[in-house]
Design a protein around this nucleic acid. Structure first.
Lengths: 351, 351
DNA sequence: AGGTACTGTGGGAGCGCTCCCACAAGTGAT
DNA sequence: ATCACTTGTGGGAGCGCTCCCACAGTACCT
């Protein structure tokens, strides 16, 4: 343990006090300048800024965190195994969006995986230690204890996709219901008549909403409901394969498939091709996410675009607002705390 | 700004002092127990541990960081754009290895991208603020100023792959030279006579070493050197395509290709197939990394395996050792600070 | 008996900030 | 002139730890 060697280092990092002395002002004034308080005269501000530059002063984060009781860091928590994180573009797109939204902030972003029990254990410790000011939770399952833990610890949090219609935490989501409708209406418009749906993980609320959209679109177009055309997947490629195989078995006459993610669609495409079905001639295929995969698939995949970058930005905005007035999410009025962003159908050769 | 509301919260987090009072001991003793010092009697330790459990005490990281002048965090710095990070399995494998090595530690891992100028700016600020105890630097290019910045700031650092034969920072690498030789010798053993090489980015020292290994293996087997068989890539798929096209143009008679990464090989395979060459019948293909891509390619790709998990662990071990005795890497004796791990050829259908 | 060591313990000092109170100086209404 | 605000500023107190000195107690040599 122990490490007192590095302590008294001559020429160590300058402190607020030293900057103050150099600028001929008090400690408090330097602090105000550093933190952009308006209650400083222009002359004083200039003097302080000069001293900061000359000494190469950089605030000590630990001291600030201790005194102000904040960390200037937020965590992006992914309650999935790392492999899924890398396999599904949804996550990397989200990370990019959040990173972009944060880049003109002082806030630091931490990426934390909580896929295994062990990792969750660590995360619980981490949160209990209040090492972040707020949490972004992506991909939340219905029975996940994480959101409640966050409320209990009074840590501001925003989730991507509410857990139910009565979500209490702040959330940002795309219009899953509307997006699914767009996909199905598109297929109907293309003359397809037997449209199957491979769902996402049904313990994710958004996946359920896509099923609802699929059902309603068909019903309103006058098609009969047929649950044999619905097979559940799990957003993964493997899940897409399994579901597609099951669907082909049950309804070999299907002429279109709406998959709950691009990755799922990629899996389905594999099975369709192996079964000798041509895309889009025999079977039209539509995915969800409009990720890089959609563009690179053969044939390029029609997909429902979610504005992930904007979603990331929206999540950050909501979170920073909550962090700013330090109140746990659940104790505030619900107004404006559930955001839903519009989707857009991107047509390509697969349909 | 401002936030004094959350300050005096009743029932706030317990402090060391409170634990001490509860256990009927002094503050120092609790600190010793928390930090695992051996100089505490068993009875006292038990009493303190009970108090900690009862109060649900969790140390305040900021206070600890301020008093002890350490952060208990290290950064994994990726001096590349995010897209490369997600596109090349090398990085995610490395992240997994490092994460695993860290999981039985109190250390926290931060992932930092420094691909754009803006991100590098941020990183510089970040390092200047000493917000991490040490840095892991993956994928370093010859002219990168980052390593020097780290030495100057006296921040312990380990890089994956030395910048040259006379690297001063601690480093961990696989045996690029030997790995390349394995690949080429394998191809020769399979009766191939015209073996091309698509290099990695040549400003990465390891990529140069692979070229050396390729050259030496051919020379020692009695082949004539022919620079027309070498084309430089950049580890990317696109680079692999470009290089392969150039090689086919120059030496249409080639019967084998050794690519500097699996991703590169995937690009080359595309071009070969489009050119009507069968793999492995007409052209044998060998990659490098043995990543997931190698297993999933069609046909499955023979590849040189680097033990990335072990490399991650080794990097962590080196770094933690340097952090523990708080001396900048460059000031210590070189002994044992350049680790080279053996590679292994994994044969598959492509060769 | 005195010395010398070691073990376990308590608590002071101090890490570098932020928050806030105090106060001087200026401004304008009464 | 007095009072009431406002603006800009200095500096004390305190955030929750770690480090280390001091010291009581015990053990083992002279």
């Amino acid at each position: 343990m122990a490490s007192h060697g590095a302590r008294g280092r001559s020429g160590g990092r300058p402190t607020l006090e030293e900057v103050a002395a150099r600028a001929g002002v008090g400690r408090g004034t330097v602090s105000r300048v550093i933190n952009g308080s308006p209650r400083v005269s222009d002359a004083t501000r200039a003097a302080v800024e000069a001293a900061v530059a000359e000494l190469g002063y950089v605030p000590n984060t630990a001291a600030r965190a201790l005194a102000a009781n904040r960390t200037d860091a937020i965590a992006l928590v992914v309650p999935e195994p790392e492999t899924r994180f890398f396999a599904e573009p949804y996550f990397s797109d989200m990370l990019r969006g959040v990173g972009a939204a944060l880049s003109d902030t002082e806030m630091q972003l931490l990426l934390i995986f909580a896929g295994s029990d062990r990792e969750r254990q660590r995360l619980a410790q981490y949160l209990a230690a209040h090492r972040v000011d707020g949490v972004l939770l992506v991909s939340v399952h219905a029975d996940d204890p994480l959101p409640d833990m966050l409320s209990q610890l009074e840590i501001p949090a925003v989730i991507s996709g509410p857990r139910s219609a009565t979500e209490t935490l702040a959330s940002v989501d795309s219009d899953n219901y509307g997006g699914a409708r767009q996909a199905v209406e598109h297929l109907i418009g293309r003359g397809r008549r037997t449209i199957a749906h491979i769902t996402g993980r049904l313990d994710v609320y958004g996946a359920q909403r896509r099923v609802d959209g699929y059902r309603d679109a068909l019903r309103e177009a006058g098609f009969e409901a047929d649950d044999l055309l619905i097979e559940s997947g799990d957003f993964s490629e493997e899940g897409g394969r399994r579901a597609m195989a099951a669907l082909l078995e049950r309804r070999p006459d299907l002429d279109a498939v709406f998959a709950a993610s691009d990755v799922t669609a990629a899996g389905a495409r594999h099975v369709l091709r192996d079964a000798g079905r041509r895309i889009p001639d025999d079977v039209a295929l539509v995915g969800y996410d409009d990720s890089a995969i959609a563009r690179h698939l053969d044939p390029p995949l029609t997909s429902v675009r979610q504005p992930i970058e904007e979603m990331g930005r929206a999540m950050i905005d909501l979170l920073l607002a909550e962090v700013a007035d330090r109140r746990p999410a659940a104790s505030r009025e619900l107004e404006r705390r559930q955001m839903v962003l519009a989707t857009e159908l991107v047509g390509r050769a697969s349909s």
